[in-house]
Design a protein around this nucleic acid. Structure first.
Length: 544
DNA sequence: TCCGACGGCCAC
DNA sequence: AAACGTGGCCGTCGGA
């Protein structure tokens, strides 16, 4: 088939399936060509210059939808060829929403050649109607629209990559190696003869082997241990436990964020091109891997290494107290709403209301701490035991606090219970956008199933609505920055309720305003009652 | 060489 | 730690 038949197809049809083929598995390499398919015809297009220009002219249009088998990797490849798809649709995404499971669809590899690509394009375009009907049956049409649109932003984000100062980062890791060594020496000195040494005096102790550590600590302290987690070790109040904790802290940084992490810095771009899985979590949250860019140490030393190149800047923007604002919106609790309307410190207000005392960050801070623990815990469907543990008070005190909380804020109790009711009656929990988490009837027959369902049903609408909001914000921010900066500015990371954008230094203030505005508008599109609060920082590096 | 389960721990 | 939600990565362990 000739380019002219591709041109004809693209002009004629507003929905076209598009499957790229490529010889390399590298997402930084552009595809060799694409297969196009509509219900009434098909064409192949090699991505040499005339083909590329033809395709790019059609894909950028808002009145043309391009259906992919797996959109995100395909969009990444196309971006490397200078082809941006404004309105992608994704078979795998729709499938996930129709099936009600997460996003790790059986990874359909890139097509090796035009034949495979043509076959796949034909297949998906003919299956689309049925697939959309199943999505609709599940009530996930609006969610599907957002999930498809946001793939463009994710592809661009992955393709752009996160900038990092590898040398500065490596120096931090070296420091941590040093600290880990010191901590281990300290620990060995404290252990003395309790640790065996081989012929050459090398201690036979593997601090990574929890069982060895447990045996050693039990011997030295004379106490029985249930486990060797941080909390247990801290409660021992023993110098050897403290040395072990210091070793763990540094060793964690060395193993997880050292060479293993830096191996993901791309040779060519010097940046990190992680994989983002938009439906990676059952709640609608995004997952990130290879590497995970959503659990980098919050330590400012590390954030300072995530640095824009010379002449460039990073804009960091996050939704302040996002989940508690969602709780306020869902419950319409007057105290919560008023606190947000008036810009009060919510934890202080909650503490003052439930304890009938004056509370601020400096006045009666222990009451504020209690309120804060409950505020966060309620988002997770926390029980009295967990609260008591968190606050280090007796169980009945935890019970009492929780009761007092729900007596003071009955609408919050009602809202949480409504979620559980819906889950039991309809079989799913739901976000503000209408994203649903369907409960598997099989797994709900276990003895602890009721409690688990209850916690998930309470948490999902909150966590999931936050995800709805951030994804909507990503779509808006991505489009706005394309319009305003012609692609010089763009997203480089997203962490649940935070966006990181890279731009020219000269544009930074304007970009910051645009990001703030789009995030606030995304909030308002979902939550009508509670006001948004977006915190924005501009700097040479990631600020949080 | 790979796999999965597990304990532990990083993030929100 | 815990009857506190969502993830991913590390190392060990036991097994193919």
């Amino acid at each position: 088939m000739s380019p002219s038949s591709a041109a004809e197809l693209l002009a004629r049809r507003s929905l076209v399936a598009l499957c790229p083929w490529a010889s390399s598995g590298d997402l930084l390499d552009p595809p060799a060509g694409v297969a196009l398919a509509a219900l009434d015809g098909a064409a192949l297009l090699t991505l040499d210059e005339p083909g590329r220009a033809l395709l790019a002219a059609w894909t950028k249009r808002a009145d043309r939808v391009f259906l992919f088998d797996e959109a995100r990797p395909a969009l990444r490849r196309l971006l490397r060829a200078g082809v941006d798809v404004a309105r992608p649709a994704c078979r795998a995404t729709l499938e996930a929403l129709a099936e009600g499971h997460g996003g790790q669809s059986e990874s359909s590899q890139i097509c090796a050649g035009p034949h495979d690509a043509a076959e796949r394009a034909h297949k998906i375009v003919h299956r689309l109607e049925g697939l959309l009907a199943r999505v609709d049956e599940r009530g996930q049409k609006k969610v599907a629209r957002l999930e498809c649109l946001v793939l463009r932003a994710f592809a661009a984000l992955e393709s752009r990559g996160l900038p990092i100062d590898v040398d500065a980062w490596s120096r931090l890791i070296d420091e941590e190696k040093q600290k880990a060594g010191v901590a281990k020496e300290e620990l060995l000195a404290l252990a003395g003869p309790h640790v065996q040494r081989d012929l050459f005096g090398v201690p036979e102790l593997n601090l990574d082997a929890d069982h060895e550590v447990k045996v050693l600590l039990e011997r030295v302290t004379g106490r029985r241990l249930l486990d060797v987690t941080r909390a247990t070790l801290a409660s021992l109040d023993h110098p050897m436990a403290r040395a072990l904790l210091l070793w763990r802290e540094s060793n964690k940084l060395v193993t997880t964020y050292g060479d293993a992490f830096l191996s993901h810095v791309d040779r060519r771009t010097g940046r990190i091109h992680a994989t983002f899985v938009p439906l990676g979590a059952s709640t609608g949250r995004v997952a990130s891997r290879d590497p995970n860019l959503q659990n980098l140490p919050s330590d400012a030393r590390f954030h300072r290494c995530l640095k824009a190149p010379p002449g460039r800047a990073l804009v960091t923007a996050d939704y302040a107290t996002c989940e508690l604002r969602i709780v306020a919106e869902l419950s319409k609790d007057p105290v919560f709403l008023r606190a947000f309307d008036e810009g009060q410190d919510l934890h202080s207000t909650v503490a003052a209301t439930m304890f009938k005392a004056e509370v601020s960050k400096t006045k009666n801070p222990e009451l504020r701490q209690r309120a804060k623990a409950i505020n966060f815990g309620l988002v997770y469907g926390m029980g009295a035991a967990a609260l008591a543990a968190q606050l280090d008070v007796p169980h009945d005190e935890g019970e009492r606090l929780l009761q007092q909380y729900f007596r003071t804020f009955p609408r919050i109790k009602d809202a949480l219970e409504r979620s559980v009711e819906t889950a039991l009656q309809k079989g799913y929990a739901e976000t503000v956008l209408g994203r649903r988490l369907f409960f598997d009837p099989e797994t709900l027959k276990g003895p602890n199933a009721r409690g688990e369902l209850s916690r998930i049903a309470k948490n999902m609408p909150i966590q999931g609505t936050s995800a709805d909001m951030t994804k909507l914000a990503m779509v808006r921010v991505h489009e706005r920055l394309l319009d305003e900066t012609k692609g010089s500015a763009g997203l480089v990371n997203t962490i649940h309720d935070e966006l990181v954008v890279e731009c020219d230094e000269a544009d930074a203030e304007r970009v910051a305003k645009a990001v703030e505005r789009e995030m606030a508008d995304a909030h308002r599109a979902l939550l009508q009652r509670v006001p948004p609060e977006v915190e924005v920082h501009v700097g040479p590096h990631w600020m949080h």
